[in-house]
Amino acid sequence: MIRTYTAFFLLGLFWGSNYIYMKWAAPLISPAQISLLRVFFGFVPLAILARRRDVLRLDQVRYLHHFLVMAALATAFCYFSMAKGTALLPSGIAGVLGGSPAIFTSIASTLFLRNEKMNRSMVCGVALGMAGITLIARPWSALSSDDAISLAGVAWMIAGAIVFGLSYIYVRRFLSPINLAPLVIVTWQMGLALLILFVLTDLHGTGQILQDWRATAGVVIGLGFLGTGASFLLYYFLLQDLGAVVASGAVYITPVIALLIGWAAGEQIGQLEIAAMFLILGSLAILEIGRQRTVQSQAVPVPSAVTLD
Results as ranks from 00 to 15, higher is better:
residue 236 Y to A: 01
residue 68 L to N: 13
residue 94 A to G: 09
residue 112 F to P: 07
residue 17 S to I: 04
residue 98 G to W: 06
residue 114 R to K: 11
residue 124 C to F: 13
residue 285 A to G: 04
residue 32 A to F: 12
residue 64 L to W: 13
residue 45 P to V: 15
residue 57 R to H: 14
residue 59 D to Q: 15
residue 84 K to D: 01
residue 49 L to S: 08
residue 275 A to M: 14
residue 190 M to T: 09
residue 276 A to G: 04
residue 4 T to N: 04
residue 234 L to Y: 10
residue 181 A to G: 08
residue 27 P to H: 12
residue 169 I to Q: 13
residue 264 A to C: 02
residue 17 S to W: 04
residue 297 S to Q: 14
residue 107 I to V: 15
residue 243 G to T: 12
residue 149 I to N: 12
residue 163 V to D: 07
residue 58 L to A: 15
residue 295 V to F: 08
residue 40 F to S: 10
residue 280 I to F: 02
residue 91 S to G: 02
residue 36 L to I: 08
residue 244 A to T: 12
residue 194 L to Q: 04
residue 184 V to Y: 04
residue 3 R to M: 11
residue 170 Y to P: 12
residue 66 H to Q: 13
residue 220 V to S: 06
residue 48 I to K: 10
residue 136 I to A: 03
residue 209 I to E: 01
residue 12 G to C: 05
residue 45 P to F: 15
residue 19 Y to R: 02
residue 236 Y to K: 04
residue 257 I to C: 01
residue 48 I to P: 09
residue 303 P to T: 02
residue 275 A to R: 09
residue 260 L to M: 10
residue 222 G to C: 05
residue 103 I to R: 07
residue 166 L to H: 04
residue 79 Y to N: 14
residue 295 V to S: 10
residue 194 L to F: 14
residue 164 F to I: 08
residue 42 G to K: 07
residue 255 P to D: 04
residue 167 S to T: 14
residue 206 T to D: 01
residue 186 V to Q: 14
residue 83 A to M: 04
residue 252 Y to E: 05
residue 210 L to V: 08
residue 201 T to G: 07
residue 180 L to A: 12
residue 221 I to Q: 14
residue 223 L to D: 03
residue 256 V to T: 11
residue 268 Q to R: 13
residue 288 E to S: 01
residue 33 Q to A: 03
residue 214 R to E: 05
residue 20 I to Q: 01
residue 105 T to E: 06
residue 309 D to Y: 01
residue 283 S to L: 04
residue 147 D to C: 00
residue 72 A to G: 09
residue 20 I to M: 01
residue 272 L to H: 14
residue 282 G to I: 03
residue 155 A to T: 11
residue 91 S to W: 00
residue 80 F to Q: 06
residue 258 A to M: 07
residue 98 G to P: 00
residue 299 A to S: 13
residue 34 I to L: 08
residue 219 V to F: 12
residue 64 L to N: 04
residue 304 S to L: 00
residue 133 I to F: 11
residue 305 A to P: 15
residue 120 R to T: 15
residue 216 T to N: 00
residue 30 S to C: 06
residue 182 P to C: 00
residue 148 A to G: 01
residue 194 L to D: 02
